[in-house]
Design a protein around this nucleic acid. Structure first.
Lengths: 217, 217, 217, 217
DNA sequence: AATGAATGAGAGTTCATTCAT
DNA sequence: CATGAATGAACTCTCATTCAT
């Protein structure tokens, strides 16, 4: 059975909920703008969304947006920052709470990676696919966070290799592959999926352990 | 070591060559339009590219585009069709030429999947990330091809499971994960990578076999 | 002596003044847009007038028009509405103020009809010759008003027939003929004409009474 | 009962047949172009019709039009010439064939005027409402013909006045009114009308005689 | 904070016309 | 005669942004 439904055109993601993380203040007009922009950017992309559409979805006039953000680009930058910070925070928290064994660490980190992409799928899609619309200056801090997250996963795997617990054919490719499969989850996951987010995360953790050929799983 | 360079803003792909497959005619103005549009869509996205930019990169006036394509959307549709057809053709050819053993089949298909994303990375990026810009009617045939490709991989894995050769925790998730990791290759692969395309394909084939826990690898 | 001058090409109307009725607010940018559009539509037609010409004649940029009207078509619709409303209002007022005798009523209505076409000749020309440029939806309310005006004249004549005061060879044709001759006045009347508007109106009222063979004139 | 139907938007004329006079050669591509242009100009106006639409309706490419006419304007000029020539020819023929009495002459001329507007309504509408789209140079010969036709009617009426047979309140206004009522017939007449063209022409001839207060009718 | 009006630039598309074939 | 391709100009309309209120 093929999963990704072909009805109604190609959607960039299936989810319609789970917009901004609770940790970010969403109240007030500024919050409504971020929320509206996130939904629209996720659906139609940054370039495909107009400032007037964001305004309309926020219940204000377009001129009012400029009382909260200096430009359209700053809205995207804020969303991307929130997204990548949230992602990085989740990875770090998972690592902190896990057993020191490489297998446990990798499983924990991959689970966090996947769960972030199921729970905040809009934010993940926008943060991952719209970065190129930011100027280098505005993209830089976000990319630093992203690189830092990649490095975190890479260090977990490298440690497993160094300790003889993992044996991937190529460390960086393993990081790339494991990262990639988690990122794509945001594009198809919905609460209607036959498995819950936790179960999907478990399966993907198992995939990651297999990729690195973990001795202990 | 983190691979994806953070300089000069976030690029959607690293490759600057490997545009259209040799199998499609690229001669004449129509070909130059497709070629130019592909490069621009890959870099800046469909909505972020103007008809005048495509024209300028094709060496004609914007009005001349309309002698070859009835609308901007038709250019994207043509590119997406070429991309997904080429992808599907590569998967089918790989399957036809491989040994009938499930492991050989999966390795062959994954290698073809990855190689397509290294050799035609621009086409792959555009075909995968800009489909949402097509109207449902124009997207439909392309999505049908895409679904068909997903199904092909799924059938290979399912056959391995049925024959007792594979043991993935979840068939469809394995398909999703294997597909995802290959798709992402288009975003970072360049001929400057420390491994060649063939080597990357081999490593990813190994990843796939591990994901399905192939007995024979 | 032939009246309609042949110099300088065929003008659609001779008048250069008498644009919008005093009853409609003409102040502000919106008013200037309506005024400018009316002059241009009268001269060159709706399709022959560009949004930039309207903007230039209004003293704003073309984009600013869209703060006042959602489309070029809406400008024409507004003008046509004003024109037909003003026409209908004039006919009704004339009927209300006239003696109840059929001859007096017909004379009053025809005078109002003609005077409207001398005083608001631009509005009359545009309202009568550009309706076909409106979509059916936007034309509908205007055409309802127009039909209502035709009916008003028809009822006056029918009443005269029923009372034995009029004897036209065909009621509806009499309405059509009387209406037509008044409408055309907008195309040639100017303040330079050897007769004033009132005198022309009197003559046309006499024509109308003759057409219906009024016993009392 | 109100005649002019309000359904389907405001049409500029009701007739869908009766395009070009038999006297004009309509065969070959040139004829098909004239025919197509006439229908389109009648429906949407000169400025509202594109050269490509004319070409499509003629069954050729737009470039082919230029093998037959040097510009779009020349097509309109040709149609307007045909229309006004046909009109003038009809008036002159009617005058030649009629009794020398002023009443007979006026009736004959008005009948011809009206019949031309019923039989060649498209040509009449275009010739009358699109002249302003011609440059002064191209409009001049057509307008000369038109003026000549007006003068013909005027001379008939003036002769009636001089002979004591007619008594209009104002000669030129009588010409204008009689001309106007006939011109408008083209906008509403169809073969579905309750009266035939001949009957309408008879009624309008009667209207004209009444307008000039003919002693003999 | 929020707005309505305004702007210059640019969007996708169509225009009438030309030209080599 | 007819065409497909091309053009420069122009089309209606939308863009992100500004500003006085």
């Amino acid at each position: 059975m093929v999963r990704e439904a072909s009805a109604l055109g190609a959607r960039r993601l299936q989810a319609t909920e789970g917009v901004l993380p609770h940790s970010v203040v969403t109240e007030g007009t500024r919050g409504r703008i971020l929320d509206a922009a996130l939904r629209l950017f996720a659906e139609a992309g940054y370039a495909g969304t107009s400032i007037r559409e964001i305004a309309a979805a926020s219940g204000v006039q377009s001129a009012s947006l400029y009382a909260h953000f200096p430009s359209k680009e700053h809205i995207l930058a804020e969303l991307a920052k929130i997204g990548h910070n949230e992602h990085h925070r989740a990875l770090r928290a998972a690592l902190l709470e896990s057993d020191p064994s490489p297998a446990n660490q990798l499983a924990a980190v991959v689970r966090a990676h996947v769960l972030m992409h199921t729970e905040l799928s809009m934010l993940a899609v926008v943060s991952n696919t719209e970065l190129h619309s930011l100027s280098p200056e505005m993209a830089a801090p976000v990319m630093a966070t992203r690189d830092s997250s990649v490095q975190l996963i890479q260090e977990v795997i490298q440690r497993g290799v160094d300790l003889g617990a993992f044996d991937p054919p190529h460390v960086w490719l393993a990081v790339a592959a494991i990262g990639a499969m988690g990122i794509r989850v945001a594009n198809w996951f919905t609460s209607d999926f036959e498995l819950g987010a936790e179960e999907v995360a478990d399966v993907y953790a198992e995939f990651a352990l297999r990729i690195v050929n973990s001795q202990d799983r």
